[in-house]
């Protein structure tokens, strides 16, 4: 299990013990985190699991794929330097303690 924290647009924090091997979108959905929609369920089609990743994890995450880059151009809330799709963030020890902020809209 890995600790992950979601901070919603109003600043409310939720910390979960997420199952290794899942992705961050799945963990959010399983726990009923409201600010993640995940309509396409990880097919990189919908851009509705957009998150802003805090340091230090932003730098250590694997690079965005070309598909993720393109999808981040389609987010409902503004794209920032630390924008990622949570379906592309794999849960495991290397992201333990990660904090992500949820956008206003998905």
């Amino acid at each position: 299990m890995t600790k992950v924290t979601f901070v919603d647009a109003d600043g409310n924090k939720t910390t979960l013990d997420a199952r290794d091997g899942d992705n961050l979108m799945q963990a959010a959905i399983a726990d009923g985190i409201d600010g993640i929609v995940g309509e396409c369920c990880g097919a990189m089609m919908c851009a509705t699991c957009h998150v802003y990743v805090e340091e230090p994890h932003l730098t250590t995450l694997p690079q965005r794929s070309e598909g993720e880059e393109e999808m981040l151009e389609c987010t409902a809330s503004e794209r920032r330097k630390n924008s990622r799709l949570s379906c592309q963030i794999k849960i495991g020890p290397d992201i333990d303690g990660i904090v992500v902020h949820l956008p206003e809209e998905q």
Binding site: M45, C46, A47, T48, G67, E70, M71, E73, C74
Partner: peptide, 8 residues
Amino acid sequence: MARVLSPK
């Protein structure tokens, strides 16, 4: 196709 039919 993914580009033509993107969320945007």
